[in-house]
Design a protein around this nucleic acid. Structure first.
Length: 634
RNA sequence: GCCUCUAUAGCUCAGCGGCAGAGCACCUCACUUGUAAUGAGGAAACGAGGGUUCAACUCCCUCUAGAGGCUCCA
């Protein structure tokens, strides 16, 4: 078959699939589908619209979803145009979970959704065809000239011929492709309305962004809604409240208050962090939480980061300004410089778990995941140039050991040189090469974020997905950064084998992002079913009647002195009730004590999945729990 | 910081321009129970400050806090 793409003819075997074509021409699959409209049938999961004979991908394919939702965005825009003629259309792309469309000069809230949805359904039921039209730039400008956003698009990126799609009385600039007709959209749901900046630039116009999702059947929508409900169960803020782990208070917005149970989890993770750091050759240091702002002026952060710092003046205004530290970096230099260092001292690994304060903007706070106060399991490693790679490998060894304890799906990114940066091109080249090299050697899948590095060096970040696997809700948990800046700024030197002074390179790393964030991520991933070693209460003892109270107390004492985190519930409510409470608190082991147990001096152990074992020896149980706690097995 | 929304009891949620409602949790009493909610009774709330009104929890404004986005970010 013959395919015309970009003005040139390409010859393909008759049975070529769009995937083959996309690969050969090195273009996105969806463009092939668009091109294919004029080409004729190709063997792929597909549907053909019986009226238009247009072939399109089914909703089941990822590309098909994108096409479907993109078309839905057009339907939304068409509905808005009818209901709010004064609104200006801008852009409306498909996204991972649906689509959005940005409007200028539109003021709606979610209470308007029912009306908009109704209008969309009207368009859907009208069975409007998506008709592709072509125009020259001049023709397009005459059509969209009154819309400055469309004019900007036409000026900036659209290459002639300009393509437009018409749906009924609605015409929009669009590359396509689209589904043949609106009638394939069987279920419509608008999700949320949000403000967004034109071109993502917070100095440009604020647009009204409406998010929505559509499906080819009502049933798909129902499934989606069920999934959303399930997702809600994984919300760490909810879980934190229900399991009595942490609170938030207007007394200190953005700073979590860990309750006794939450503090147990917190400290268990700190313990893990310390054990790992010890194993991998780190020394822990403890440094001030507040210091003269001078420090950040030297480091360069003051210039860039001042707005996010908690700055304080002591009693006399003339005194130097102080600031709560937003990062630990500069303090490790004081430790390094406390004596003359030799190349034999390197790598020097200094771990610092200091409390950090960053005045994050109000709208960005998010439970434990984004806070104003947090504690990183942070470290700074001073290395010579030829130690950089092996040291980063070692950091990843540590990371893998920690992450193997959790069922995480990590996403890795390599962030490269930003526009505003310090250090030589040569340093950046070498730094980025080393990071790339490490990623390749470890066979990690990663994406490159061009220009996203720190001003002082490139970095690798690791994000963890929540249980729905949606990348937009991923938070960075791990980071490793190469820093060309710190040692220079603070005049840090070591003596090399040549008996001359050299400037070390500093590596920054954080394994858990912050302890609090890590807890949040774990809660989202487990829905609160923490592994026994991390559970604030590992076992709860329930009595069936008051007759068993004294034996239950004996068991409690025994487990407690064995170091197990145990609770006793000998209240006089029913067993069913107590079981339910224990289950709701997600306690790994529920121990039931009745007459039979007291008589035989055993316990009955119910695990979280509802399975119960009777006649267990309490000593054996204690031993088992202690072992799983120490080895951190599931 | 920007956009939209929200704020009623410890929690989840009703409600209305004219006396504040429920379920769970809590307290008391009864019940003494074998693997996900025993029954009865009781105590407990309209985020803060202005304004409109005879009257505001309800309408308007400001503030504070929260949710979801945007911009940021461990």
């Amino acid at each position: 078959m013959e395919i015309i793409y970009d003005g040139r003819k390409h010859e393909f075997p008759e049975k070529s699939t769009p995937i083959d074509i996309a690969k050969k021409l090195d273009i996105p699959l969806k463009d092939v589908v668009a091109a294919k409209i004029d080409v004729g049938p190709i063997d792929l999961k597909r549907e053909i619209d019986h009226d238009t004979k247009i072939e399109f991908l089914t909703f089941k394919d990822k590309e098909g979803k994108q096409v479907f939702w993109h078309s839905s965005a057009h339907v939304l825009a068409a509905a808005i145009k009818r209901l709010y003629p004064e609104a200006l259309m801008t852009l409306g792309p498909p996204i991972d979970g649906g689509f959005y469309y940005d409007f200028y000069n539109l003021n709606v809230g979610d209470n308007d959704f029912p009306d908009i949805e109704k209008e969309m359904k009207r368009i859907v039921e009208a069975d409007e065809k998506f008709v592709r039209k072509e125009a020259t730039r001049e023709e397009a400008l005459s059509i969209f000239g009154s819309n400055k956003f469309k004019v900007e698009i036409l000026g900036a990126e659209a290459k002639p011929p300009i393509t437009m799609y018409e749906t009924g009385d609605f015409l929009d600039l669009c590359r396509g492709p689209h589904i043949p007709s609106t009638r394939y959209i069987k279920a419509v749901k608008l999700l949320k309305v949000a403000g967004a900046y034109w071109r993502g630039d917070n100095k440009r116009e604020v647009l009204t962004r409406i998010y929505g999702i559509t499906f080819p059947s009502k049933q798909d929508l129902d499934e989606y809604m069920a999934m959303e409900t399930e997702r809600n169960k994984h919300d760490h803020k909810r879980i934190g409240k229900e399991l009595e782990l942490f609170e938030t208070s207007p007394l200190s917005p953005g700073s979590p208050f860990f309750l006794p149970k939450g503090a147990v989890v917190y400290n268990e993770l700190l313990k893990l962090a310390r054990e790992m750091d010890r194993k991998y050759g780190y020394d822990e240091i403890v440094t001030p939480i507040i210091a003269k702002s001078e420090v950040w002026k030297i480091s360069g952060h003051y210039e860039k980061y001042r707005e996010n710092m908690y700055r304080v003046s002591p009693f006399n205004a003339e005194e130097d300004e102080y600031a709560l530290k937003p990062m630990n970096c500069p303090f490790s230099t004081v430790i390094f410089k406390s004596k003359t260092r030799s190349y034999r001292d390197l790598p020097l690994r200094l771990a610092d778990y200091g409390m950090l304060h960053r005045y994050e903007l109000e709208g960005t706070l998010d439970g434990l995941l984004r806070t104003r106060l947090f504690e990183q399991n942070d470290a700074h490693i001073y290395v010579t140039e030829d130690q950089v790679e092996s040291e980063i490998m070692r950091i990843f060894d540590l990371m893998e050991e920690v992450y193997s304890l959790f069922k995480f799906t990590p996403i890795m990114t390599l962030a490269t040189r930003p526009e505003q940066r310090i250090g030589t091109e040569d340093e950046w080249n070498r730094g980025e090469d080393i990071l790339k090299n490490v990623l390749e050697k470890r066979k990690y899948k990663y994406t490159v974020k061009e220009g996203d590095g720190a001003f002082y060096g490139p970095k690798i970040d690791v994000y963890v997905l929540d249980f729905t696997g949606r990348p937009e809700s991923a938070y960075a948990v791990f980071t490793v950064q190469i820093d060309f800046n710190l040692a220079v700024r603070f005049d840090v030197k070591y003596v090399g084998p040549d008996n001359k002074e050299h400037t070390p390179i500093v590596l920054h790393r954080a394994v858990m992002g912050s302890i609090g964030r890590f807890i949040g991520i774990i809660l989202e991933n487990t829905a609160g079913d923490l592994p026994a070693w991390l559970s604030p209460v590992q076992a709860r003892i329930l009595t069936i009647t008051e007759r068993s109270s004294s034996y239950a107390k004996e068991i409690f004492d025994e487990l407690f002195s064995a170091g197990i985190r145990v609770e006793l519930d000998d209240s006089n409510s029913t067993l069913d009730y107590k079981i339910r409470q224990s289950q709701l608190m997600k306690i790994p082991y529920t121990i039931v004590i009745g007459d039979k147990e007291a008589e035989k001096r055993t316990i009955a152990v119910r695990s979280r999945d509802g399975k119960t074992k009777y006649g267990i020896d309490p000593k054996e149980f204690a031993k088992e729990v202690k072992k799983t706690t120490e080895t951190r097995s599931q």
